[in-house]
Design a binder for these strands. Structure first.
Length: 800
DNA sequence: TACAGTCGGGG
DNA sequence: GTGTACGACTGTA
């Protein structure tokens, strides 16, 4: 390679350069391909050497056999005996280091080695190339990079910078005119723009196009021209993974018309199959994926948390986790955390154990026992309460891990129990000099920078925790109208999710860096901290209405004295001093209602509540509007009722607002009976938990899925199925069937029942029960004949 | 009454 | 690309 000029720009992607098996002794081997969005405005494909190494440990004889095996193999390797550190042991380990020049050859070679020598222990053998680059070069997606082409790559910024320079990404979005699951689309709508860190900004719009899907030839020719013209860094699609790109690729092959979806002509487009897996008792469905090279493809509908944090959140996750943008967009935050731990381990020069794809393993009885020790939950005091402060620990579990240095290798062999107070105090005293905590004072979380004795997990989480707090603090200082708010909110949200999921990994028995003792230590500290907070609250003259893992709902006993956030400062300071964890006031509820169990009105259920903060904003948990299976019509009406109630300036004024909310409910019910509610608003959307054949008593969702199956549309476990409730047979209508549903058969009574339930959740706890008087219960399922004659308004008016 | 199926929650 | 919680609730047999 010749002497090329030094380049600067943003790193878009890295991946292994494709490699054929070269003859032994080949002088120059493919390494890694890096794509740079240069400051010159050009996109540079750079190839750089990147030798990769895996390690094997075991009995000397076995290692010697591996040595001979590799020497005779067709792949050129460099072999070395080395001493290296393992995470869980202080003694260095003697390993055989196996270095391969071309990273693309590693996985095949390793597969051969591990099947031939299954008894050896392997390390660093399944680390994805981008993570290896992140560890070695300090690079990450969108890092500002300085490059000496052909030699090296180095980041000049860090993922922890609060305000990184924003690259002018060129984006092409493609979406069909309708959901292809529901009906066959007729045309594609395309827009090209330059992404400058905000959601689509019309001022950066570069072009808009419409292409009809049939006939295919002009479609492909035009699309190819548009791709060439805009040369997007990001192809942002709707249903690109499961419909658009597979369809385009197929047409392009059928017609022999090339379609330059990839920017890198040396690579084949990568397809990943769909899959279903179980996580935390929930079945998760991941649709198939289409990954591009030299350019990103993101399918909005197959991107994790897209609705929550959009492109900004995806880019932020990629920056901090080191995962390629296309991967970060589609994986759970848990994968992100796991990746960060791997990079931390590599940087600590610690061997990363090979994670075998193990067959399913049954939980042992003792695991079940210990796993039950989770967060502390208190039953709330049922009913309506005025002037309630909600306080919660800031990122409690990650905060505990960082503050008390809890990590699989540092969490002691002895079990932690709730009654062991000593570790909490002594460790805290040794670890940090505590600053007083005030609401929103993020500095108190500032634990010391990672030091010699700090474990892998705290080292990984500490910068994440700090950046989230910095982001929140920065957001707090931006005025409400500032357009940058959306960007920083999305980034903060990405951090929130990464932090939330990191805890689960500590207890996961198959995790590379998991350990049940560490998991238990965290929950034990958490429970202890919450109990201490409760004591402090009571000492300060608050009664505790409810506690939930990391939050407390408290009511000052001295009425009228404690009503402003500032009145909570001394309480928060005291809790922080007693727990060594930062805590803040989420807000003060004008009023909040804790709901009882629906089965037994005397039994409280945790985390089913709604209330209005002093600024008029609502906080709602656990009720219908929060559930994904609630049809939009029901959810929206319930939310509108809540919004009406939230207008009550005081709890005393609430009774005046109940009839208004009730009237709104009636209007919506009338609309329902008139047939004035659009059908999509009546769609229930439920997740299938298993294969259709495995249902013994098919649920409505399973019956709807059966309809889809009969026309050849398979619904996989973890996928949602959308359907309408109908009267008669069949009693459901799957939305994605080709034929229209019979609107006369919409099961109005069913929707009334759902609506009534949702209305009860809102009205009953506020004393609105008399509005929903019992005679109605009979009218909910009247004989069909009678129902026609019933007046449009079935609910009883106020006062009757 | 039993049990099968489904969901939320974190922030 | 990880994870078979836990408990509430509903509908059906």
């Amino acid at each position: 390679m010749g002497k090329e000029k030094e380049l600067e720009g943003w790193l878009l992607d890295v991946y292994a350069a494709p490699a054929e098996i070269p003859p032994v002794g080949e002088p120059s081997l493919p390494g890694v391909v890096a794509w740079l969005l240069g400051d010159d405005g050009l996109r540079h494909r750079l190839e750089m050497p990147f030798p990769v190494t895996f390690y094997a440990a075991g009995p000397p004889g076995e290692l010697r056999a591996l040595w001979r095996f590799l020497r005779q193999g067709s792949t050129r390797v460099d072999l070395q005996r080395q001493e290296r550190r393992e995470l869980f042991s202080l003694q260095p380990l003697t390993v055989l280091a196996v270095q391969v020049q071309a990273p693309a050859l590693l996985s095949d070679l390793f597969r051969k080695v591990s099947t031939t020598f299954p008894d050896l222990t392997y390390f660093d053998s399944d680390i994805s190339l981008p993570l290896a680059c992140a560890a070695r070069w300090g690079v990450f997606p969108l890092a500002r990079c300085r490059v000496h082409p052909g030699e090296s790559l180095a980041a000049v910024d860090s993922p922890w910078d609060l305000k990184p320079p924003v690259p002018p990404l060129s984006v092409l979005s493609i979406e069909p005119d309708c959901d292809p699951e529901h009906a066959p689309p007729r045309e594609l709508r395309l827009r090209a723009w330059t992404h400058r860190g905000a959601s689509e900004d019309p001022s950066t719009r570069l072009g808009m196009y419409r292409l009809t899907l049939q006939p295919a030839r002009p479609l492909l020719i035009n699309l190819a021209a548009i791709l060439k013209r805009h040369d997007p860094d990001l192809l942002l699609t709707s249903w690109g993974d499961n419909w658009l790109l597979p369809m385009l690729i197929e047409r392009s092959q059928e017609l022999g018309l090339p379609l330059p979806l990839n920017r890198d002509p040396n690579c084949e487009i990568a397809h990943r199959p769909e899959r279903s897996y179980v996580s935390y008792g929930q079945v998760i469905y991941r649709d198939r994926q289409v990954h591009l090279f030299g350019r990103w493809h993101i399918d909005r509908h197959n991107a994790t948390l897209w609705d929550d944090y959009t492109l900004e959140g995806v880019l932020e996750s990629a920056r901090v986790t080191g995962l390629p943008v296309q991967t970060a967009a589609r994986t759970s935050p848990g994968t992100g955390i796991s990746s960060m731990q791997i990079v931390t381990a590599l940087r600590m020069q610690v061997l990363v154990p090979w994670r075998k794809a193990e067959p399913e393993r049954f939980k042992q009885a003792d695991d079940l026992f210990s796993a039950d020790q989770g967060g502390l939950v208190y039953q709330p005091l049922i009913g309506l309460h005025a002037n309630v402060g909600m306080i919660d620990f800031t990122s409690m579990y990650p905060g505990i891990m960082v503050r008390f240095n809890i990590s699989p290798e540092t969490a002691g062999a002895r079990p932690h129990r709730a009654d062991e107070l000593a570790p909490l105090e002594s460790q805290a005293a040794e670890t940090v000099a505590l600053a007083p905590a005030y609401p929103g004072s993020w500095q108190t979380m500032a634990a010391p920078p990672p030091g010699e004795g700090d474990g892998l997990v705290p080292r990984t989480l500490s910068p994440l925790l700090h950046k989230r707090l910095e982001l929140k603090a920065y957001l707090g200082n931006l005025p409400g109208w500032d357009p940058r708010r959306d960007i920083y909110k999305a980034r903060a949200s990405a951090h929130k999710w990464l932090l939330v999921t990191c805890f689960g990994y500590l207890g996961y028995r198959n995790a590379r860096f998991g350990r049940i003792e560490a998991h238990e230590a965290v929950t034990a500290y958490g429970r202890e901290a919450l109990l201490r907070a409760k004591e402090v609250c009571e000492d300060f003259g608050f009664s505790v209405l409810h506690m939930y893992v990391d939050g407390l709902w408290v009511k000052p006993e001295a009425a009228g004295e404690i009503t402003r956030p500032a009145d909570y400062q001394s309480l928060l300071t005291a809790i922080s001093e007693h727990t060594h964890l930062p805590i803040s006031l989420d807000g003060i509820f004008r009023w909040v209602a804790f709901l009882p169990s629906r089965q037994d009105g005397r039994v409280p259920v945790p985390n089913r509540y709604f209330g209005v903060f002093q600024d008029g904003s609502l906080k709602v948990r656990g009720i219908e509007v929060r559930r994904h299976d609630t049809p939009p019509f029901i959810a929206r009406t319930q939310m509108e009722m809540l919004e009406i109630l939230a207008q009550a300036p005081t709890v005393e004024a609430l009774p005046e607002y109940l009839p208004r909310a009730f009237n709104h409910l009636q209007r919506r019910l009338q609309a329902l009976r008139r047939g004035a509610v659009p059908l999509p608003d009546l769609l229930a959307s439920l997740k299938l938990s298993r294969e259709l054949e495995q249902y013994r008593t098919p649920s409505p969702a399973a019956r709807a899925a059966r309809q889809l199956q009969q026309i050849g549309k398979e619904v996989r476990p973890g996928q949602r199925v959308r359907f309408l409730y109908l009267r008669g047979e069949p009693d459901v209508h799957a939305w994605d069937l080709p034929e229209e549903p019979d609107v006369r058969r919409i099961d109005i009574a069913m929707y009334e029942k759902l609506m009534r339930r949702a209305a009860e959740s809102v009205l009953l706890p506020l004393g609105g029960g008399k509005l929903l008087a019992p005679p109605l219960q009979h009218s909910l399922f009247p004989p069909r004949q009678r129902r026609q004659k019933l007046p449009a308004v079935q609910l009883v008016e106020k006062g009757s």
